[in-house]
Every structure is written in C-alpha cells, then in structure tokens.
C-alpha cells in the first residue's frame, strides 16, 4: 500500500470514529439524567422557569429528533448556545482553547526531552540505584493526584519562596499582547512585548511542570524498555566489536532506533495531558478549556459540556492520526500490510 493510500484510508476511518464519539456523548449526556431541566434549574425553580429551559434545550422533542438536529447543526459548525455564558459554544471554545494549547505544548517541551533523558539514563545504568530512583519517580508520577501536586508547587514556590508568580496567565498589571495565535508567549514575541513575554513564561512554568510530571515518567519508562531491547540487538554488538565508544554507540546507533516507541506514545500522552489540564487549570486559575469544562460540568451546562468533550476528542483523535502517519514515515520497517 502506498503512503498516500494509507493516509486517505485513515482519514476516511476518522468519519465513523468521530460520528461514534458524538453519538455516544450525546446520548450519555441527554439520556442519563431523568430530568435535565430540573438539574439545570436547581431544586427551587418554578414550573415556569423549568418550562423555559425545556424549550431552550428543545427537550419537548423526542431525543432522536434532537440528535439528528444536533448532527445537522454540527456539520455547519454550530454547537449550540451555552446556558451559562449565553454565547455560542463554539465561540467559547475558541476563546478558551489557545490557553490550554499553550499549556499543553509547554508541558510537552518539558516532558519529551526530560523523559527521554531519564529513560536512556536508566537503561544504560540498568538495575543501578539510579535506575531504581527513576523507576520510583516514574511510578509516583502516574500515582500523583495532579491537583495536589500543583497545590504543593504553589505552596513552596509561590507562597513560601516567592520565586514564581501565582495563578493566571499574566500579572494583573500587564496588558495581554494583541491576539494573533492566542498563545501569549508567541503573541508577545510577535508584538515585541518583552514584559509580557517574560511574565507569561514565568506564569506558565508551575502549571506546565505540574501537568508534565506524570507523562515524563511514562516517557522515561517507555524509552527505557525500548532502549533495552535495542541494546541487545545484533547491530549494537557489531558496533561494539568495531571498537566504537559506548557514548557513540548509545547516541548514534541505539537512541535513534529506540526513539520510535516513545514518539508513537506521544499521541496517547497528549490525551492524558488534555484531561490533566482540566485539573491543573482549576488549581492555577488558568483560563483554558479545562476550567471552562469544570464550570460547565458543575453548572450542568449540557451544550457546553458536549462541546468540550467533542472538541477534545477531535483534537485527540487527530493528533493520534498525525502521530501514526509520522510513525509510518519515520520507520520504513512498518509494513503497510493488507487489512491494516
């Protein structure tokens, strides 16, 4: 199979997956509660208020009609109107998404090099004390309640030491840079606003480290096991026999092949980061999608909840698609076989 056939096939396969996602979320969210209007309006609402909400959500129609109407509007990019903000959900999502994207990207910038470094280190020094320390670090990362770790970082580095600024994307007295990409770090660079540039970096470090901890550990573990596999391979023994230094063998021969596994895993980790962002943003007052999601969920703002889940899943599925395609391009050994 040619590579562009593979890409085309994968793109076509996206359609049923995305449709499935929308369908499952829609029915789970609207079928589950016995009385959504009551849930939204609260226990003290009058019959009149309930009726208003029922009409607004279209609850007077049967669910399958609402489902097809929703799909129809979705195709036109209309995700409905948020009950809480009274704005179109899509506008809300576009407002909040850049902050989350920025946070996730900076987390990846921390996680990928650090995770690979730790992974290589623990593979090379296999079964040493260092290896065990890295293993415990990695396991504690996936065992950590993210929000609690964020609180600890705030306590130490903001309240006690005062090294890093507190919640938010910028200090209150700093004017945000003009919006181009929505990522403050990049926008302030483009506008030549050094104060905003430095300040936004200072603000993003604690939340990004919080978010990156778990996935750094995962990356380290995967790099380690893939390194160990490669180190045992014939061509590494051949390189040793040629008399290359261990440093050269690790960096030039082993690492390049061992990196394939952690790179393909990045797609999965990206999903982990997106979900982790919900909790991290809550702690750090980060005005992103995660905080919007929590607001929407605790206020039973169904259209907004549905919008967030759909958008996040779309992003997640597409990132995974890109990773899969990159994987096929990077590694010529992957056979684009029949059926796959």
């Amino acid at each position: 199979m040619k590579i562009h056939h593979y890409i085309l096939r994968r793109l076509l396969l996206l359609i049923p997956v995305l449709l499935g996602t929308v369908t499952i979320t829609f029915f789970l969210i609207y079928l589950v509660p016995s009385n959504p209007a009551r849930l939204i309006a609260g226990p003290r609402a009058t019959g009149e208020q309930l009726e208003k909400i029922r009409l607004e959500l279209g609850l007077d129609e049967p669910i399958y009609i609402r489902y097809f109407k929703y799909l129809g509007r979705l195709l036109k990019g209309d995700l409905g109107r948020s009950i809480l903000t009274r704005r179109p959900v899509l506008d809300d999502l576009l407002t909040f998404f850049p902050a989350t994207l920025e946070l996730t990207l900076v987390s990846m910038l921390i996680m990928v090099p650090l995770g690979i470094f730790f992974g290589v280190l623990s593979a090379v020094k296999r079964n040493s004390a260092l290896d065990h320390i890295i293993r415990v670090f990695a396991l504690s990362g996936v065992s950590m309640p993210v929000y609690w770790f964020g609180l600890i970082l705030l306590l130490v580095f903001y309240f006690k030491l005062g090294i890093f600024p507190g919640p938010g994307r910028l200090d209150p007295h700093i004017v945000p840079p003009p919006t181009i990409t929505g990522l403050y770090i990049i926008d302030s660079l483009l506008a030549g606003r050094w104060d905003a540039f430095i300040n936004s970096i200072e603000h993003i470090i604690l939340p990004a480290v919080t978010l990156a901890y778990a996935t750094t550990g995962m990356t380290a573990r995967i790099t380690r096991s893939s390194m160990l596999e490669v180190i045992g391979a014939e061509y590494i023994r051949a390189a040793k026999a040629k008399g290359l230094s261990p440093r050269e063998i690790i960096l030039k021969h082993a690492l390049r092949n061992a990196l394939i596994a952690p790179v393909t895993f990045i797609g999965y980790e990206f999903g982990y980061l997106l979900a982790g962002a919900v909790l991290t943003e809550t702690i750090f007052g980060w005005p992103g999608l995660g905080r919007y999601a929590v607001e929407a969920m605790t206020n039973v703002d169904f259209p907004a909840v549905l919008g967030v889940v759909i958008l996040t899943t779309f992003v997640y599925v597409i990132v995974n698609l890109i990773v899969d395609i990159a994987y096929v391009i990077i590694d010529p050994r992957i056979r684009l076989g029949k059926g796959e």
Partner: peptide, 20 residues
C-alpha cells in the same frame, strides 16, 4: 474503540455531571 478514543477522565466527568 470509540470509548477508548475519548480522553477517559473527561468523559467520566461529563457523565458524572449529567448524573448529578
């Protein structure tokens, strides 16, 4: 497969929100 393509914490949160 569709369930596995969700970021699962987010889906669980959405369902929990719908259930109350």
């Amino acid at each position: 497969d569709v369930f596995l393509s969700f970021p699962y914490l987010l889906l669980a949160m959405a369902i929990a929100a719908a259930l109350g």
